[in-house]
Amino acid sequence: MNRRTWRLPALTGLLALLTSGLTAVPTAQAALTAPTAFTHPGVLVSRAQLDLVRAKVQAGAQPWKAAYDQMHASKYASLSRTPKPRAVVECGSYSNPNYGCTDEREDALAAYTLALEWYVTRDSRYAAKAIQIMDAWSATITDHTNSNGPLQTAWSASSWPRAAEIIRYTYTGWPSDKVNRFGTMLRNVYLPKVVNGSNSNGNWELSMTEATIGIAVFLDDRTVYDKAVTKFRGRVPAYIYLASDGALPRTAPGSGLDTRAEIVNYWQGQSTFVDGLTQETCRDFTHTGYGLSAISHVAETSRIQGQDLYPEVADRLRHALGLQATYELGAAVPSWLCGGALHKGLGPVTEVGFNALHHRLGYGMDNTQRLTEQQRPAGANNLFTAWETLTHADNPN
Rank of each mutant, 00 (worst) to 15 (best):
M1K: 11
R7L: 14
L8P: 01
L11T: 09
L14W: 11
T19F: 10
L22P: 02
L22N: 12
T23S: 13
T23V: 14
A24S: 14
V25C: 02
V57T: 10
G60Y: 07
Q62G: 01
A67I: 10
D69W: 00
Q70G: 04
S74Y: 00
A77D: 04
L79F: 07
K84P: 00
R86Q: 11
A87C: 02
V88C: 03
G92E: 04
Y94P: 00
Y94D: 12
P97G: 07
T102R: 13
L109M: 12
L116S: 07
E117V: 02
V120P: 03
R122S: 14
S124M: 03
A127D: 10
I133Y: 00
A136H: 06
W137V: 06
S138N: 15
H144M: 08
T145A: 15
T145K: 15
S147E: 14
P150I: 06
L151T: 09
A154E: 05
A157V: 05
A163L: 05
I166R: 10
Y171F: 12
Y171K: 08
Y171P: 02
G173D: 05
W174H: 11
N180F: 04
F182C: 11
G183H: 13
L186Q: 13
R187Y: 08
G197C: 07
N199A: 07
N201T: 13
W204L: 05
S207G: 13
T212V: 06
I213N: 05
G214V: 08
A216S: 06
F218Y: 14
A228N: 10
P237L: 07
Y241G: 07
D245K: 08
G246D: 08
A247G: 15
L248G: 10
P249C: 11
T259W: 09
E262H: 06
I263W: 09
N265H: 12
G269F: 01
T272P: 04
V274C: 11
T278W: 03
F285Y: 12
H287K: 10
S293K: 02
S296F: 04
E300W: 01
E300Q: 15
R303V: 03
Q305V: 11
E312T: 00
L317A: 13
R318H: 00
R318P: 03
H319I: 01
A320G: 13
G340E: 12
A341R: 15
H343N: 15
L346T: 05
E351F: 02
G353H: 13
G353V: 11
N355E: 04
H358D: 03
G362D: 06
Y363F: 14
M365H: 08
D366L: 12
D366A: 13
E373D: 08
A380P: 01
N381A: 02
A386H: 07
